[in-house]
Amino acid sequence: MTSTHINLNFVTDIINDKRTPMKLINIKRKTQLEQRHTREMGVLTTNVTYIKKMLFNLIPLATLHKYRETYYGEIKDCEECVLAK
């Protein structure tokens, strides 16, 4: 009997929860270190930030935008400046 009572309390807590509901599609931003190569400079290690659309916060659906920050603090789009040719 107590287990049923606990389950009912759990259900009523979920119903009365005032937080935001779970979203199906979220936008996530992730920064990772990547190596880029050029003839003039050689290997360039830079932080590349990906903005992705995620399903249930687990499955990536699409990459919306990808950019990197230069040594001098400028932000450049990764599609504009292709370093590896």
Rank of each mutant, 00 (worst) to 15 (best):
I59V: 15
L58Q: 07
N16Y: 04
H37T: 14
N57S: 09
E34R: 06
E69S: 07
D17C: 12
L33I: 10
P21F: 12
L55E: 13
K18C: 07
R68W: 00
V48I: 13
I25S: 01
L24M: 03
D13V: 14
A62M: 09
K66S: 09
K28G: 06
T12C: 13
T49K: 00
K53P: 06
V43C: 11
I75R: 04
I75S: 06
T20W: 02
T46Y: 02
D13I: 14
K76Y: 12
V11P: 03
N47F: 04
L33D: 08
T38Y: 04
L58C: 06
T45V: 01
T46L: 02
Y67N: 03
P21A: 15
Q32Y: 03
D13W: 05
R19L: 12
D13S: 15
T46A: 04
K30N: 15
V48G: 00
F56C: 14
N47H: 07
Q35I: 11
Y67W: 04
V11A: 15
K76S: 11
A62S: 13
A62Y: 13
K23T: 11
D13H: 08
I59S: 05
G73H: 07
L33M: 11
T49Q: 03
N26T: 07
T20F: 04
T12R: 14
R39Y: 08
A62I: 05
T31I: 14
D77N: 13
K30M: 13
M41T: 09
N16S: 12
D77I: 03
M54F: 13
N16H: 10
I14S: 10
C78L: 12
H37V: 11
I59W: 09
K18G: 01
Y50M: 03
P60N: 03
K52P: 03
K53G: 02
C78R: 03
T70Y: 03
E69D: 11
E69W: 00
N26C: 05
K66L: 08
Y67A: 00
E69M: 03
D77Y: 00
M54P: 07
T31P: 02
P60V: 01
V48D: 00
T12I: 14
R19N: 13
I59N: 05
R36T: 02
L44C: 02
I59F: 09
D13Q: 08
T38N: 10
I27K: 08
N57E: 06
I14F: 13
D77C: 07
V48W: 00
T38I: 08
R39K: 10
F56P: 01
T70C: 02
K52R: 08
K18S: 13
N57G: 06
I14C: 11
T63L: 04
F56R: 09
H37I: 08
E74H: 06
M54K: 03
Y71K: 04
L24P: 00
L58R: 06
V11R: 14
T49Y: 00
E69H: 06
P21D: 15
N57M: 05
N16I: 05
L55M: 10
T20N: 02
